[in-house]
Design a protein around this nucleic acid. Structure first.
Ligand code: FES
Ligand code: FES
Lengths: 150, 150
DNA sequence: TTTTCATGTAATAATAATAGTTACGAATAG
DNA sequence: CTATTCGTAACTATTATTATTACATGAAAA
């Protein structure tokens, strides 16, 4: 299967939106993300329901970030996307009759559950503000490099 | 995409093999795992290369566990399977030119890398012997329940 | 009011990864 | 020599994500 890249894509989009004082259309976002406007709408729909963004139809409409950068963590966004499955690996059957399989499932589930909890906690520690700051740092570095070269 | 269930399947197979004093054929294993003999061979191929199991062709041949139950961890098996991708989620692009995307990738990669390290460490703590013991406990419990019922 | 712009959404196709099948070659025991 | 069993390549099926097409709905602008 293809890998799910919605979280990655949506973070990119939100940071873009944060830098602008007027709404961004799905068309504009799609160009940035190298994808299709309909895909943008579909993905942002979840964020709208959670109140992370607002959308306006018609002339001058588009998408706007509805909360402060410091108030939105990657975990919030993961949740708004519907908490998609994190792991590619899974059990053959979730409720097997065979006792061997039950023992195997239990051991694997244990490990995966803990890893998931840790990962989600980590996502909660990073806000859009953190990412915006990191971007600014990278941008300054980038300019310094360019200056140095000529 | 479909989820990868090879680790789960192979653990089931190995525990089965451990209980037997002669080789198990791919056919027999496939019946246990509700799958196809060719799938069994393909999956076991990696374990053979790592020396976890041996295979013998022809009459009376089949698959044999080559190491003690205490000496094989779930991590060893994960490695023998070729360390398949653990996460379903990934970045849109692994080496983006855009600096925003770089910042996003870095934050996500960080979180995922740590979760992966933790998960793999956890897999290393559980051996086939652990699983076999857990199975025996479950089996005893199962028999007790049956006895109680009549 | 009509036109234009933009989202909302359903339906369908494309893409990609895993799993299952078929077919046949190679080795080994009897 | 024959029956059995692994080894492997090629092809199909299944499933999840992503992309595309088409059209309805709502809102600003002409
Ligand atoms: S393309 Fe617009 S910020 Fe990455
Ligand atoms: S079917 Fe054989 S142990 Fe599960």
């Amino acid at each position: 299967m293809k890998r799910n890249s919605r979280l990655s894509a949506v973070l990119h989009a939100l940071l873009h939106m944060a830098e602008r004082d007027r709404p961004m259309t799905s068309e504009e976002l799609a160009t940035c993300l190298h994808t299709n406007p309909v895909v943008v709408r579909r993905t942002m729909a979840g964020l709208r329901e959670t109140g992370l963004v607002t959308s306006v139809r018609g002339h001058g409409g588009g998408w706007t970030l509805a909360r402060a950068l410091e108030d939105v963590s990657m975990r919030d966004i993961y949740a708004a996307l519907g908490e998609p499955m994190l792991f590619q690996m899974g059990n053959v059957s979730e409720s097997p009759g065979c006792l061997v399989e039950q023992a195997v499932n239990h051991a694997l589930d244990d490990a995966f559950r803990d890893a998931e909890a840790m990962l989600i906690a980590r996502l909660g520690e990073v806000t859009l503000a953190t990412l915006a700051d990191d971007f600014k740092r990278r941008f300054a570095e980038h300019r310094a490099t360019l200056k140095q070269l000529g």
